[in-house]
Each structure stands twice: as structure tokens, then as C-alpha cells.
């Protein structure tokens, strides 16, 4: 008996089905990606502790008032695009000074960069010594009976900090690791009616300046841009080599931003 031929399925409407699906996806999705500036919110403090006074030179204050006028470090700024340059100046003014020059300049009020944050330069021996000291202190604290766990944690975070510095300097490959004054920060002060547009612009300008600082350093050290590190970590978030590179750049140029809640 002859085999019966299998009837062919008419695939003519397949294209119509696919088109339908395509149009559905076109309608329900968006092409533009969500972009945003991530900023941590500080933990709420229950007990107000007396604050150590911060020197003026370590503060980059950006003020924006109700009528959207800008003031940076006490001077009015007409064009918001200038903020990034002021941030760059803040970081770069005293960056190139050596340890001994820093000592001289920080004692001389007539020096042009006196009102800008100074850098501390750590050699590997200094970091090792501090790391050893911090480890010892942390261990002693842990052994103390009835030690406050919060305090113990604090001591161990100190050890981590020095270890990070050690790693950063190793990767940096220089004899010294420059570190901006630990208190140097940017402070955004707005009033309650300041437009979000201006607030976002300030964030954008800060981000632009930080990118430029880190990009320059990246070019100097490895010969490629910071964006390459960012892209690499975007596709491969656990790449140890690039994570270390990013950590070094962030150690060289930390972005410490304080957003001040406006008064009612």
C-alpha cells in the first residue's frame, strides 16, 4: 500500500502572527533607558553628638535659593555649567604639592590655595605601620571583656580602611598615595522652592567633574579612559581587576556629597 502523503500546513499566516507580536512589543515597551544619580541617605541619628569643627577649606558649598540663583563658596554663579570647573579646582588646587610643600603652604595664609583642601601622602611603610597598629587595636578591643560590639565593629572598619589603602597604593605603582583631606566634601544646600531642574543640574555637574578627575587619572595610570572601566563593570560586575581599578580611582577622588534638608 502506498504511503499517504502528509498534508502540508499552510504557513501563510505565520507572518501575520509575528507582525501582531511585534506590534504588541513595540507598543508596550520603551526604548529610552532610565538614568539616575544614586545617592545614599545617611542613617537617622538618635543622639546628636557634638561635631568636630570642619575647616572652611574642606567645604565646597553649593547654594541654590527659592528663585533659583546659585552661589558656590560664597560667590554668585550665573551659569550653572561653571559648577563642574569649580569642583575640579577644589580637587586639583593642592593635589600636586609634595608633603613638605603641603606643610609649608598649610601654615601660610597668604598662599593662593590656602582655602582649598590639602592632600596627605602615604608611603607604603606608613600604611603598613598604621595597618599593623589598627589591627592590634582591633584585636585588643575584641578581647576586652564586655566590649561594645559597635565599637569593635568600628575598630575593624579602620583595619579595612588601611587595607584598602594598601591595595590602592600597590595598584597605583607610585611611591606615595595622595589622599584628599578626610573631611573634604561637597555640600548641596537648597531651599524648599528650588526647582528640581537646578538640583539635578548640580548633581549632573558634580558627576561630570568626578568623571573628568577619574578619567584623567585612569588615562595617566593605564592609558585608557574611565568609561572603559564603567562599561566593563556594567557587563561583568564581578571582574576583580576592574573592581580594584575603580576602587583606586575612588580612593584618589572620593565623591563625598552632603545634601542639606531645607528649613521650612
Amino acid at each position: 500500500m502506498a504511503k499517504r502523503e502528509i498534508p502540508e500546513i499552510n504557513a501563510g499566516s505565520m507572518a501575520d502572527i509575528a507582525f501582531l507580536l511585534l506590534i504588541f512589543f513595540l507598543v508596550t515597551t520603551t526604548m529610552d533607558r532610565d538614568k539616575a544619580y544614586i545617592r545614599p541617605i545617611p542613617k537617622k541619628v538618635e543622639i546628636e553628638t557634638p561635631q568636630t569643627p570642619i575647616q572652611n577649606r574642606d567645604i565646597l558649598e553649593i547654594l541654590a535659593n527659592n528663585s533659583n540663583n546659585l552661589m558656590v563658596r560664597g560667590k554668585e554663579v550665573r551659569n550653572p555649567d561653571d559648577i563642574s570647573d569649580l569642583v575640579l579646582e577644589f580637587y586639583r588646587k593642592n593635589e600636586k604639592l609634595s608633603s613638605s610643600e603641603t606643610d609649608v603652604a598649610s601654615a601660610d595664609p597668604g598662599y593662593a590655595g590656602f582655602e582649598f583642601p590639602f592632600y596627605t601622602r602615604y608611603t607604603i611603610d606608613e600604611i603598613d605601620a598604621s595597618l599593623y597598629k589598627a589591627e592590634k587595636e582591633a584585636e585588643d578591643m575584641e578581647k576586652t571583656p564586655g566590649a561594645d560590639p559597635v565599637l569593635v565593629k568600628y575598630y575593624f572598619s579602620k583595619v579595612d580602611e588601611w587595607e584598602k589603602k594598601r591595595k590602592a597604593l600597590k595598584l597605583y605603582g607610585k611611591t606615595e598615595l595622595p589622599e584628599i583631606s578626610i573631611q573634604a566634601h561637597m555640600r548641596i544646600v537648597v531651599q524648599s522652592k528650588t526647582a528640581y531642574e537646578l538640583f539635578a543640574k548640580i548633581q549632573s555637574e558634580i558627576e561630570e567633574a568626578m568623571f573628568e578627575l577619574r578619567d584623567d587619572a585612569s588615562q595617566r595610570i593605564w592609558g585608557f579612559g574611565y568609561s572603559r572601566i564603567v562599561t566593563r563593570l556594567g557587563s561583568e560586575p564581578t571582574d576583580a581587576e576592574f573592581l580594584a581599578k575603580k576602587a583606586l580611582l575612588e580612593a584618589l577622588y572620593p565623591a563625598r556629597i552632603i545634601e542639606v534638608t531645607p528649613k521650612k
Binding site: 538614568k35 539616575a36 545617592r39 545614599p40 541617605i41 542613617k43 545634601e259
Partner: peptide, 19 residues
Amino acid sequence: FDIRKELQEIEALKLAYSV
């Protein structure tokens, strides 16, 4: 900043400003 304060109260400590 009012929203920020609310988030701080419930310890949702990561905020992002979209642009």
C-alpha cells in the same frame, strides 16, 4: 527632601534622582 525624610525613617537608604 520630604520624601527623602520619609525614606530615612523606614531605613530605605538608597535614593536615585532620575534625569
